[in-house]
């Protein structure tokens, strides 16, 4: 173990193990690490154990092996939740990437008021998930006095059931999450565009490249890494979405918008049966899928060689 303590002050070889520990980095790191391991990492591990039990609230529960997983993956409610979660993830991430890139490209152009525009684009991202749910619930009121239906009414279109029709509700939830998460994607995309060397663009200009050619042949390839990082973050966020959809639809109608986190909350705390063991199994599924993306990220950013500089 190396220490930065100057040998002239305290010769290394004279120090006992304890002294070396005290003068090393660990006294600074351990308090944070303890909190982290105890309150954050330990629950991940404990949850794996819980998922093998039939624990309910106020009842310790016994070991039942893989029973929870078996029941879950045969349960049509859970399977349809997984199916919607998949669609939801793909659609929101695709939407966030596409519009995030579009707006980042727009903000790269030269025109006045860009700073103000950028700020307005980021507002949904700073709004809490809870408030976003409330906002959109009011926008999507289904009588003709809802904002969206009032607009349709102007064009003589009959009111749409935005949230009480299963298909529409699924689309509305996706739309709201794209609205909410776009700002983050925009920030990363803007960062990615900034690191492209200006000379490359200029030499392409001299060769007479069109805008789309420059985008396809220079910008996108140069942004490959930042786009993958962006996708990884957005996928993790989408997979772990809860509050906006909880407030907006509560998972309804008839479970149509029950993304996986809602099923976990409902299984453990919502439906009166409080099956903590089975809920834990859902949590483990979410954990494992998230972990896969985290590992991809860590490898992608070459984390081992320095502080994860991409």
């Amino acid at each position: 173990m190396q220490s930065i303590v100057q040998p002239s002050i305290q010769p290394l070889n004279r120090q006992s193990k304890i002294e070396r520990f005290i003068h090393g980095p660990w006294p600074f790191i351990l308090p944070a690490l303890f909190g982290l391991v105890f309150m954050r990492a330990f629950p991940f591990v404990w949850q794996i154990w819980l998922s093998f039990t039939n624990m309910r609230l106020g009842r310790p529960g016994e070991f039942i092996g893989l029973q929870n997983y078996r029941v879950l993956f045969q349960n049509p409610v859970f399977l349809s939740s997984i199916a919607y979660t998949g669609v939801f993830m793909v659609a929101t991430v695709a939407g966030q990437m596409f519009f995030g890139l579009l707006l980042a490209l727009l903000l790269e152009e030269d025109f006045k008021g860009k700073a103000v525009y950028r700020m307005t684009f980021l507002i949904p991202w700073i709004v809490s998930g809870f408030v976003a749910g409330i906002l959109w619930q009011l926008m999507l009121v289904e009588t003709r006095f809802g904002m969206f239906n009032a607009l349709l009414d102007l064009m003589n279109v009959p009111p749409v059931r935005w949230l009480s029709n299963a298909r529409n509700a699924q689309m509305s939830v996706i739309m709201v999450y794209i609205w909410k998460g776009l700002g983050f994607s925009l920030l990363l995309m803007s960062g990615g565009l900034k690191i492209i060397p200006q000379e490359m663009i200029e030499s392409a200009d001299i060769d007479g490249a069109s805008y789309l050619q420059k985008l396809r042949l220079i910008k996108l390839p140069m942004m490959k890494d930042i786009i993958s990082v962006n996708i990884i973050f957005s996928v993790i966020a989408a997979l772990n979405s809860y509050e906006t959809v909880f407030v907006l639809t509560g998972g309804g109608p008839g479970g149509a918008t029950s993304i996986i986190a809602l099923v976990m909350f409902n299984t453990a705390f919502g439906d009166g049966r409080n099956q903590l063991g089975r809920g834990s199994a859902i949590g483990v599924v979410m954990f494992v899928v998230t972990l896969i993306f985290v590992i991809i990220y860590v490898r992608k950013t070459n984390f081992a060689k320095g502080y994860g500089k991409p």
Binding site: R40, F42, P43, F44, W46, Q47, L50, I236, N240, Y242, A261, M264, F265, A268, L276, G279, S280, G283, M286, F287, T290, L291, V294
Partner: peptide, 9 residues
């Protein structure tokens, strides 16, 4: 990894 995934423990 969001704390949400381990809300039960």
């Amino acid at each position: 990894i969001p704390a949400l995934v381990s809300i039960i423990p």
